[in-house]
């Protein structure tokens, strides 16, 4: 018969030893675990978007996609619509016009609960690639008036996917329009500090202010044109981007041309033939705002 004291001591020693060993194992593996999980997430995002960098807007749900020049190329979001067997984890990429750049549905190994061989076929490229290039109203099954072919004998799963993606686009599309990135027009800046709410920001370098970024509105031909522009301390325009415009397709919308927008940086911006009203309005508005905010430049 062993004494109570001996039992307690043995148990404590064993428990303590186990805890010490585990703390070492944890310290060794935890950075690796965090890295693996981040890579898995990034791989998933890269499958649905051409972008090279993703900036989180809503944790684990919404990202802004940036290309190698840190320009926004659109957004990537995740939705979890209810399918036949459980929720379906879907990752969707959207370009700046709200068209789908890619759809990825998690495999059974990643938590998909649809029936293998039936509902689980929604993960196959034959199904997911149909979505590429579509915009929200087209993302419905053909039976429901859309353009997506359902999977035979898996209508519930297919419909859950289309409904989930459509709802996701409706929810997150707002981040496409107004969700411009100030870095687009001032790539040299490290960060930005707001001076006038939603209108004017200081562009901050490593230690000092290196310019300003402002948001402006011009009266276009059909509708207002919202834009954002950056100006460095010498008064040189570092970039102009259209945030919103709804000019005539193929004519006034030419102001979205990157070539035209680049001429602002060289100071040679001129009205575009065939889109005179829209382009002039934009040029005037950029100049007017520049005069208005000049005092903020050093």
């Amino acid at each position: 018969m062993t004494s109570t004291r001996q039992m307690i001591i043995t148990l404590c020693i064993v428990a303590l030893t186990c805890a010490i060993i585990l703390s070492f194992v944890y310290a060794f593996t935890s950075p690796r675990i965090a890295e693996t999980q981040k890579n898995l997430m990034l791989d998933g995002l890269q499958e649905v978007s051409q972008a090279v960098e993703f900036v989180e807007i809503i944790s684990d749900t919404l990202w802004r996609a940036l290309d190698s020049l840190k320009k926004s190329t659109g957004i990537v979001f995740r939705v979890f619509p209810q399918g036949y067997g459980g929720s379906i984890p879907i990752t969707v990429g959207l370009d700046r016009d709200g068209r789908i750049t890619g759809v990825r549905i998690a495999s059974a190994a990643e938590g998909l609960k649809e029936t293998p061989g039936l509902g689980a076929k929604i993960t196959e490229p034959d199904f997911t690639q149909q979505f590429i290039g579509k915009c929200a109203p087209e993302v419905q099954l053909k039976n429901d008036g859309g353009e997506i072919d359902a999977i035979t004998a898996a209508t519930i799963s297919s419909r859950a996917v289309t409904a989930g993606i459509r709802r996701g686009i409706e929810t997150y599309a707002q981040y496409l329009g107004e969700g411009y990135d100030k870095r687009d027009v001032f790539p040299a800046a490290e960060s930005f500090r707001e001076i006038i709410r939603d209108t004017l920001w200081y562009a901050l370098g490593e230690s000092d202010t290196i310019g300003i970024v402002f948001f402006g509105v011009a009266q276009g031909y059909l509708d207002c044109i919202k834009f954002v522009a950056g100006v460095d301390n010498e008064g040189t325009i570092t970039g102009v981007e259209i945030v919103y415009s709804s000019e005539t397709e193929g004519i006034g919308e030419a102001i979205r041309d990157q070539e035209f927008l680049n001429t602002f940086k060289e100071g040679t911006a001129e009205a575009i033939t065939g889109a005179t009203v829209s382009s002039k309005a934009l040029i005037d508005a950029v100049q007017k705002n520049l005069q208005r905010f000049k005092e903020y430049l050093k």
């Binding site: 194992v25 935890s30 690796r32």
Partner: peptide, 14 residues
């Protein structure tokens, strides 16, 4: 359970 936790961490990592 100590060894299960060890294999659990290693599997998650690698």
């Amino acid at each position: 359970s100590t060894f299960v936790t060890i294999i659990d961490y290693f599997m998650q990592a690698f």
